[in-house]
């Protein structure tokens, strides 16, 4: 067993940021183990993404652009990763803890009879063993998680978005991109992708460096308008509490928390959100938390670093103006 692999996921020919973060971790592990780092990327544009992966730190890449991989489907993707890993026996495989990364590693782990550690926010080597630290109980606790005796299978690991530093790309780095064939023929795949509805023009919550989030305090669907303005000025993503999602003011894919998304931005601005534990579960690892709330007793103040007690309909537009002035917009 030798070699560290990072599974690079893509959508529409573009890699997810968390894949480059995983590659950064992979580089560290590969250096520590004294083994080569390989990026594995499937689907349209994966040859070019393989080259990009080498710029981000991989020694080499494996790519497959077979038509069966044009749109993400679990079976052909996992089958190919599983089959490649069975042949070439990497010691570690890392991916992002995303819908695709988690599914592909999870299914391939069965093919390989491999242990899988999910959602790590830290990882280091202890000898040849990857020692991961993972949030559990919806981020209320942490656990050290490891695969002490992998046997003849790789140690598999997914990492959370924005938990590991983004490596620097260096376009002068070179390496080979090997093209491989798919292992599943179209006739053997039981699913067909018949459409995709892109979420329009939105910054992805899990990738966002800044999130402006609104809760029941926004009072209705229109109440998000001042928050949207602030998002625009900051290049931020728009989040929401469950109460406002349940009220039908904003779609579920904006929900942050235990039954929504887990986010870890540099800055989280909670507007009209009381800060229930279930909401905290999704955002407590934000670097700086700002609260805007008219209730000076709300639980959010226990978590927040900065805040203004007041009506969000006065404070948020004032903040937008103040940022505009300071950022010269």
């Amino acid at each position: 067993m030798s070699g560290v692999w990072v599974y690079i996921e893509q959508h529409g020919g573009e890699a997810a940021n968390v894949s480059w973060e995983a590659l950064g971790l992979g580089r560290k592990l590969a250096n520590g183990l004294g083994q080569p780092l390989t990026a594995v990327v499937f689907g349209p544009g994966s040859g070019a993404l393989g080259t990009e992966a080498i710029h981000y730190g991989a020694d080499q890449a494996i790519a497959c652009e077979d038509a069966t991989l044009d749109r993400f489907r679990l079976d052909p993707y996992a089958s190919l990763l599983g089959s490649l890993a069975k042949d070439r026996q990497p010691s570690v495989i890392v991916a992002g803890a995303t819908t695709r990364g988690g599914d592909v590693l999870g299914a391939a782990a069965i093919d390989l009879n491999a242990g899988l550690v999910t959602g790590a926010t830290e990882a280091e080597l202890d000898g040849n063993v990857v020692m991961a630290h993972c949030p559990i109980y919806s981020s209320k606790l942490m656990a050290k998680v490891l695969i002490p005796d992998a046997g003849d299978a790789p140690q598999m690991l997914t990492i959370r978005s924005r938990a590991f530093p983004m490596p620097e790309a260096d376009a002068s780095r070179t390496g080979t991109v090997e093209t491989v064939a798919a292992v599943k023929a179209e006739g053997d795949i039981g699913t067909k992708v018949v459409g995709f509805e892109e979420t329009q023009g939105a910054v992805s919550l899990t990738d966002a460096a800044i999130i402006v989030s609104g809760g029941r305090g926004v009072g209705g669907a229109d109440g998000y308008a001042p928050l949207q303005e602030l998002c625009k000025v900051l290049g931020a993503a728009l989040g929401a509490s469950r109460a406002s999602v349940d009220a039908g003011w904003i779609p579920y894919d904006h929900q942050v928390g235990q039954t929504g998304k887990t986010v870890s931005p540099d800055l989280y601005i909670a507007c009209g959100i009381s800060g229930a534990v279930q909401h905290q579960a999704g955002m407590r690892t934000a670097k700086i938390i700002v609260a805007i709330n008219k209730d000076a007793e709300a639980p959010i103040w226990k978590l927040a670093h900065y805040g203004i007690v007041g009506d969000l309909f006065e404070v948020v537009p004032a903040l937008t103006e103040a940022f505009k002035a300071r950022l010269g917009q």
Partner: peptide
Amino acid sequence: VKSKVSWPEVYGLPAREGDVEII
């Protein structure tokens, strides 16, 4: 089929330092 993943240690999150600064 045996468990391969182990959790030797659980720990609490580091306490949040300092109080909120209300502007």
